[in-house]
Design a binder for these strands. Structure first.
Lengths: 204, 204
DNA sequence: TGTCCCATGTAACTCGTTACATGATTGT
DNA sequence: ACAATCATGTAACGAGTTACATGGGACA
C-alpha cells in the first residue's frame, strides 16, 4: 500500500501524469520512495477504477494525448485514512546483516567489495538526503512550493517540519550504515588479511 | 535469494528438518531473518531438486517419518558463492519515513500511536539483539556451539566476531529508530497538540 | 533523418503473506 | 480423551523486478 499512499500524497498538491510522477519518484526529488513505470501506470489505472483519482486526457502535440490524474475527495479521504492508521512495524528482514552474520563463508575480496559498495551507496545517499533537507528548509524545492501553495499558510511550518524530520531520519540511517561498513572493513582486514584462513578456503 | 542463503547457512553446521529450521528462524535464536513454514518447506524441496540439499526420511514414532535435510558439496559451493558475491545495495524503500514525510495528513492520535508502536517495537528488539550478542560472546548459544563444533578451532574467533558484528549492526539500527521515534513524538505534540490545525482537519 | 526525450503499456517471474488444511505424537 | 506440539503441505493474492514493446514530439 506504500505506493498507493505515495501517489496519493504527491497528487494531493496538484494533478500530474504518470510520467510526471515517474520523474518525481525515480530521479529528481522525492527520494523516500521509488517505483518503475511498469508499476506506476497500472496502479494509477486501479486507483482511478477505485474512485481515488479522476483521469483527464489532455492534448500533447497535434496527434497525441496524455492522461493527467487528479485526486478526488475519496482519494483525499483515503490519504487521511492511511496517514492516520497506525500500522504495526514489520519484523526485521535485513539482508546486509544476514550476509555479515555468515561472513566466514566469504572470500576476502568478496567481503571487502561488499562493504566498499555499502559505504559508497550510503555516502552518496547521505549527500542526496542532506541536499533535500536544505532545499526543504529554504523552501526552494519546486515540489514543496506547489504543496505549500495548495495548503493554507498556518500549515506550512508543519509540512516543512515533517518532511525535514523524515529526511533527517534517512540521514541518521545512512550515518549508521557508514559506520557499520567501516567496522566491517576493519573486520575483513583482521580476519581475512594475509596469513589467515577462513571457511571459504575449506573447499571440497 | 536471502531465504536460500539463510537456509544454507544454518544447514551448514548440521542436518535439520524443516520444522527445526522454522524454530530457529521464527522464534528462538537467529533473529536476523524469519520466514513462515509456508515459505520454508517448498524452498527446501526446490533446493533439494537443485542439488544443494539431500533429504532423508527419518522415523518419528511408530507410524510416521520426517524429512531431514543435509547440505551437499554443491550446497556448500553455493553458500560460498553467495557469501562472496558482492551485490549492490538496493535503493531505499522506507515506509516509515515515507509516512512521516506526509504526516500533515494524519490525525493527532494516529500519528502519536504510530510512533508509540515504533518505539515499543525497536525497544523490544534492541533487548533481544543485545541478548543475542551476550549469548554469542559467551559462546553459550546452542546453535553457535553446533556451528563451532563443525568448524576447525582456528576459525572460531572469526565466526563469533562476524555474528557479533551483525547483531551490533541491528542494535545500532534500533537505537537510531528509537531516537527518531522520540523526536517524532515531540513533533506530534508541537504540531498536533491542543489549539492546532492540521491538513487532517480540512475534510471535504 | 536521426536521436533524444516524452509517454504508456503487457507479460513473466520471484518473493512474501495470509488463509485453508491435515494428521501423527507426546504428555496429562 | 484431550490438548499441546510436532510436522508438512496447497492455493490465492499482492508487491515488486525485469524483459519486451510501441509510438509521438522536439530539436539539430
Amino acid at each position: 500500500m506504500s505506493l498507493r499512499f505515495a501517489l496519493l500524497a504527491v497528487l494531493s498538491s496538484r494533478p500530474r501524469t504518470g510520467y510526471d510522477l515517474l520523474q518525481i519518484f525515480d530521479s529528481s526529488v522525492d527520494s523516500v520512495w521509488h517505483a518503475p513505470h511498469t508499476q506506476i501506470y497500472p496502479e494509477l489505472r486501479r486507483m482511478e477504477a477505485d474512485g481515488l483519482l479522476a483521469a483527464e486526457e489532455v492534448p500533447r502535440g497535434p496527434n497525441s494525448t496524455k492522461r493527467a490524474y487528479t485526486i478526488t475527495d475519496g482519494g483525499r479521504d483515503e490519504l487521511r485514512r492511511q496517514a492516520s492508521e497506525a500500522v504495526p512495524p514489520l519484523r526485521e528482514k535485513d539482508p546486509y546483516r544476514l550476509k555479515a552474520a555468515y561472513m566466514e563463508w566469504a572470500s576476502a575480496d568478496g567481503a571487502r567489495e561488499q562493504f566498499v559498495l555499502h559505504l559508497a551507496h550510503y555516502t552518496a545517499w547521505y549527500e542526496r538526503w542532506r541536499g533535500r533537507v536544505e532545499a526543504l528548509r529554504s523552501r526552494e524545492d519546486p515540489v514543496l512550493r506547489e504543496r505549500l501553495a495548495a495548503q493554507p499558510p498556518e500549515l506550512h511550518d508543519e509540512i516543512v517540519a515533517v518532511k525535514v524530520f523524515a529526511y533527517e531520519g534517512l540521514m541518521a540511517r545512512a550515518r549508521m550504515e557508514i559506520e557499520w561498513a567501516e567496522r566491517g572493513l576493519e573486520l575483513v582486514e583482521r580476519f581475512k588479511g594475509p596469513g589467515t584462513t577462513t571457511a571459504f578456503d575449506h573447499a571440497a
